[in-house]
Amino acid sequence: MRVTFTVNGRTETADDVWEGESLLYVLRERLGLPGSKNACEQGECGSCTVHLDGVPVCACLVAAGQAEGREVRTVEGLAGGGRLDEVQRAFVECGAVQCGFCTPGFVVQAHDLLARVERPTDAEIREALAGNLCRCTGYEKILDAVRLAAARRAERR
């Protein structure tokens, strides 16, 4: 089947997509967007999180055909004009990036949280990121990064 959808603001088409093919596979292997990571393939780790029509989803659990006519935003789509967005910058500055495998999912989830809640509490941050797993950082630096990004966004307003 042919699947046509918008990815990071551009219309993309994938041909010869088989029925069980995941959105994650199409993004990584057919469209050359390796940011979303393929870790568990069961929706347990959050490494493949993308926005589908503005809602965070595990791309490994979404059949590619379900994206037909819809809008997908990947971690690559958060940056603009050759610059990282404030969440991505905060992750780098706070040392929240270790091996980097889980980072795209955390960044997409944090981005979603900060779009909804201007100054999230630690409990809100933890709840928003609960579906994402990291084996390297111990999470504190990730929380620091979300706090920093939230503070910077609040200063701009």
Rank of each mutant, 00 (worst) to 15 (best):
E44P: 00
R152N: 04
G43H: 07
G81P: 07
R119P: 00
A123S: 13
N132G: 06
E71D: 14
R135V: 11
P56Q: 09
P34Y: 06
R119I: 11
R119K: 14
E71N: 08
G131Y: 14
N132T: 12
G46S: 08
E118W: 00
E86N: 06
G131Q: 12
E118Q: 13
G138K: 02
L24V: 13
C99M: 14
A123E: 15
A145Q: 03
Q42D: 09
V97A: 02
L33E: 02
C60T: 09
T49A: 05
V117W: 09
L114I: 12
A151R: 15
E29L: 04
A130G: 08
A128Q: 08
C60V: 07
A67G: 12
E140D: 14
N38V: 01
R28E: 01
G100H: 12
L61M: 15
V7Y: 01
L113T: 05
V92E: 07
G131D: 13
F106N: 06
F101V: 14
S36A: 15
L148F: 12
L129M: 12
R10D: 15
W18D: 14
D53I: 08
H111D: 15
G69D: 13
D53E: 11
H51M: 14
A64R: 02
R157Y: 02
A39H: 06
G82M: 11
F5N: 00
A115T: 12
A149F: 08
E21I: 06
N8M: 07
F91M: 07
A14W: 03
R126K: 15
D85C: 13
V55L: 11
A39Y: 02
